[in-house]
């Protein structure tokens, strides 16, 4: 089955499909492809999807997502499909799976957490307490972290 491509084919890179509609910008932020990168990125929002009604799709050129980036993606979009494109073809599919612990992905937002002191050297750690519905807490202080707060405080 061929689907009409809304953006041109990319030669090398990653396609992230089945992002919940409207969440592509959060994914970009989580993956930090909005800062310190020059990869061309194409974004499709709110397109019809058989599986999910509407969805977002991201195509990032010349970047193959690594495990850490897949973990970050899993936070926003645990059901996304990831295809690695090489020479215009799908070379590999990567599984998006939310890890139990997220190290240095985002900082805890609780104002009285020990990690608020920037000079403390141990890593920021978040714990995934539940997946459906998703519930995330700071490993140190135990305070719940909303998804908006995580995106806002991404490292």
């Amino acid at each position: 089955m061929s689907e009409m491509r809304r953006v041109t084919a990319i030669c090398n890179g990653t396609v992230i499909d089945h992002i919940p509609a409207g969440h592509a910008l959060q994914v970009i932020r989580m993956l930090r492809i909005d800062t310190n990168r020059s990869n061309p990125v194409s974004l499709v929002m709110n397109v019809p999807s058989d599986k999910m009604g509407r969805k977002d799709v991201l195509k990032i050129e010349d970047l193959e997502l690594n495990q850490e980036e897949l973990d970050r993606l899993a936070l926003i979009s645990p059901h996304a499909s990831v295809a690695i494109i090489r020479n215009y073809g799908v070379a590999e599919k990567r599984v998006v799976e939310l890890a139990d612990e997220l190290v240095n992905v985002a900082r805890c937002t609780f104002s009285n957490c020990i990690t608020q002191n920037d000079r403390e050297p141990l890593p920021q750690k978040l714990r995934v307490v539940s997946r459906d519905p998703i519930e995330i807490r700071c490993y140190y202080c135990g305070k719940g972290q909303s998804m908006e707060a995580i995106v806002e405080n991404v490292l």
């Binding site: 805890c108 609780f110 009285n112 957490c113 020990i114 990690t115 608020q116 403390e120 141990l122 700071c138 490993y139 140190y140 202080c141 135990g142 305070k143």
Partner: peptide, 10 residues
């Protein structure tokens, strides 16, 4: 004992 939450785990 510490006034900051999470200090013991840290």
């Amino acid at each position: 004992r510490h006034p900051r939450q999470g200090a013991a785990q840290y």
